[in-house]
Structure formats: C-alpha cells, structure tokens
Design a protein around this nucleic acid. Structure first.
Lengths: 243, 243
DNA sequence: CCAAGGCAAGAGCAGTGCTCTCGTTATTGG
DNA sequence: CCAATAACGAGAGCACTGCTCTTGCCTTGG
C-alpha cells in the first residue's frame, strides 16, 4: 500500500532525511550562522535549486532542525527521568532531569544554541515548535507532580500580584499542583537553562571551573526551591522534618 | 596630547563612532545576523571598502558592539543600584539590579541577544570583553557585600565536592564573602539571565503573561537564595528568623 | 614646500539565498 | 496500456554578502 505510491514518497522522505542529516552535520560543525543551503546541496551531490523542492527556504530547514532539537533534548530529559528508580528521592529525580539537559547541551552545543540561544534573524517560532518545546518543562512538572502525590510540596506563598497569573498558568500546565509550586516550577525551568546557557556560552569562563559539581549543587538548590525535599519519596506522612 | 594630533584622529574617532552608531541602528532594527558592513557603509555614504580602514572585519565591528552592550547593561545595573536609598532593604537593592537588567534587555533586545544569546559564528570572546562582561555580576556581588557587612548572610552549607571550587571563586570575585554565599551568587547570576532570556527569546510565550510581576517574584526568590533577608539593612543583630 | 602615509573609491572574487525556466522521469487517470 | 500530469533535477541568473587589491587624492609632518 505504501509501496505503490510509496516509490516516490519514500524517495522523497529519504532525500528529506538526508538533507536534514547533512544540515545537522554542518550545524554541529560550524553553527547555525554558517549553515548554507548550497553547501548542503553540494555535499549531497545535488544542485542548490533542487533542495528547494524539499524545503521552501533556509528558515524552513532551520525550523525542522529546531523541532528535532527540542524533541531530542526533551527525549533525553524523559528517558533520564524514566531511568530513575521509582523510589528514588525526589531531588534525585529532579537533578537527573537537569543533568540530562546539561549533558545533551554539552554534546550538542550548536543545536542547543539554536533553540535556547538568540532566535535567528527575524524569526518567530512557528506553531509546530510549541509541542516539542515543552517536553523538558513537562518532565520537570511530572517530577513535582509525583512528589506532590507523595509527601506534598511546601513553597512560600505567592505575592498577591501573582495569584491570578499563577492560577492561570496552573490550569494550563498542571491543574493538580498548587499555584505557588507551579510558579516556582516555571522560574526554576528558566533558571535551569540560565545555568546551562552560561556554561555553554562561555559566561563561566574564568569563573566556574568545576562545572559539573557546581551545576549539580545549583540544580539541587532549584529542587528545593520548588519544594522537593530529601527523604522518602512517597511517605504518606508529610510532617517529617529533616533540618 | 590627544588634541594636538587630534585633527586627523578626531575625524577618525568621529567616523568610527558614526559607524558604530549606524551598526547599532541596524542591529536594533534587524538583529545581528542581518548586520551588513555594506549596508552600514551605504547608509553612511561611503563605499564598503573604506569601512575596513576602521574595522578590520565584520567580527571586529561586532566585538565593539558587544563591549558597548556589556557596558550599557552594566551601567544600567550600577546606576539602578546607586539610586537605591542607602537604607533600603537588601532584597529591594537586589531586585533593583535585576529589574534594571531586565528593563535594559527589553529595551535593547538585539543587543541583549548579542551578548547573552548564542555566540555568533565561530566566535570566541576576545579578552577585551571580560571586564565589561562582569559589571552586572559585580553589582550583584556588591549588594551581597553590603548585606554581609550589615546583618550577615545565611545560606546552607556547600557539599564537600564544591568547597575547594567555591573557595577559589571566592578569592577571585569577593574574598570578603563566605564561599557558600559566593556560590549562591554565581548561580543566581546565571539564573537571573535565564529568566530574562526566556522572556526575551519567547520561551514564556503562552506560558507567562504577567511577565513583570512574575519576574519580580522570581528575583526576590533569588535574593533569598543568596541569603538576603527582609528587614533592616544594617541591623547588628543577625538573630532574626523569618520562617 | 615636498615627500609620505592615511584615506576613499572602484573593480573584482568567492560565496550566499532564492527564482525561473527547461527537459526528464515517474505516477496516475482514462 | 497509453497519454496527461505532476514532481523532479539541472542550470542560469539576480541581488546580495564579506573581503582584497589597486589607484589616485589630499591632509599632515618634516
């Protein structure tokens, strides 16, 4: 069934994948700014104009790479979380996600820069990116959700100016969590990428040397900021004090 | 001395400034990727090759803009801090610096992206940028230093894996502060830019709407994370607990 | 006053994104 | 089964880019 009309479509899918692969290669090698349609075509043995049959413009090719990158870092976060034992302490589950993001970023710096660095030229993210872009955030939310089901989460209350906004965000992303926790989650989410970006973009040069230890500590602090506490992950008694 | 031989040098300085101004205009209008030497020269009524008498390459022009941008955001942070009344509560002084950074970033998004977004092509920051790049960090440190002189700063102890590193960083940036505070400062420094970058680069689209209120709250939380506490700024009694 | 050097101008090279046209080739409807 | 149709690759070409080199002008220092 797919072979009948597939002969052509399969070839098209293969060429499309080959273009993306070569583009990703150039992206990893030289960065997004030096990604050249002509060079991709040249490397693939075709002429540049032929490439426009597959991607209407350079920006569309970049968008495809962006979506893939969001998916890749999201998948890395999710599998890191899935690999955590079910009874692992909540801060450990949290930092596992954080470390997965950092590890992926260090392994794919240019792809990371593509999605979490400056948006390219006059580029505004198409709708196709919003789903994949939220995977890391959802992984972080799910850690908090599990902890909330377990022994509860305690974060300071919100200022009045934020209560409506926090309620609104809560309904969108995690209706089963208390709004103060969701607000802390969103902040921690962005701050996690602040840590990774500063390391990757060189702001830590000549400042932080032991990057991994520093990151682990900061990620653990973020875990505490969203209310995750050390101790039993699913203890039904939330009155435990670990000071 | 600069006035004597200034006739020619002054003209050179003026042209250099005009080039940078026009380049900054194009940067603000279209972003770093579309900044074109030829367009700058065209707008200034000169031919592109003449511009190379002033900047040896496009990257050098960009570097000049980067240094200026670091200086601009650093100056914004410093004046915001200087405008704070001497007896303002420490968290207020902290958030004043944070808000100044955010305000500057919102007013100069492309310049912000230039320094805190993805580093351009294969670009590695020249030494000339390290001084200006640390001005915001130094402003944050000085808030902590004042608070430390006042009523002390209380942050959780560091894990053993970080104690040496934290001591080293402390000697470099703030020998008069306790290492755990310095570690928290560096983390908060990067996390502050995580917040700003996520807002500016669109990650908060369809998530956070009340950006200013959210940012203020997150910045205040960061202030607490580095040990700044509400209350009198210079009270000699550090025994206050605000849990 | 005159040589020397900084300077603008222009041509030119190699590269880019993108468009258009032109045969060819594969798919599909009659 | 064959013809109409759509997809496709190739090539030329346009407007643009960063950058280099050469050629003269013109201010400046001796």
């Amino acid at each position: 069934m797919s072979t009948t009309r597939g002969a052509r479509e399969r070839a098209r899918a293969e060429v499309t994948a080959a273009i993306k692969d070569e583009a990703r290669r150039q992206l990893a090698a030289e960065g997004a700014a030096k990604l050249s349609l002509r060079a991709v075509a040249r490397e693939l043995g075709m002429v540049s104009s032929a490439l426009y049959r597959y991607f209407p413009s350079r920006d569309d090719l970049l968008t495809a790479l962006i979506v893939d990158a969001y998916d890749a870092v999201g998948a890395a976060a999710e599998t890191a979380l899935a690999r955590q034992p079910a009874h692992a302490p909540q801060p450990a589950r949290w930092t596992a996600v954080c470390r997965a993001v950092r590890t992926w970023a260090l392994a794919h710096p240019h792809e990371y820069a593509l999605i979490y660095g400056s948006p390219v030229p006059g580029y505004t993210a198409p709708m196709a990116t919003v789903g994949p872009a939220s995977r890391v955030g959802r992984a972080l939310v799910s850690v908090a959700r599990d902890a909330h089901r377990g022994n509860g989460l305690a974060v300071p209350p919100l200022p009045a100016a934020l209560s409506d906004e926090a309620r609104r965000i809560t309904e969108d992303v995690a209706p089963d969590l208390p709004p103060p926790v969701v607000a802390a989650l969103v902040a921690a989410w962005s701050q996690l990428f602040g840590l990774v970006s500063f390391e990757l973009f060189g702001q830590f040069n000549r400042v932080v040397e032991e990057r991994e230890a520093f990151f682990d500590h900061a990620a653990t602090t973020l875990a505490h900021a969203v209310g995750l506490i050390d101790g039993r992950p699913a203890g039904p008694a939330p009155g435990g004090d670990s000071t």
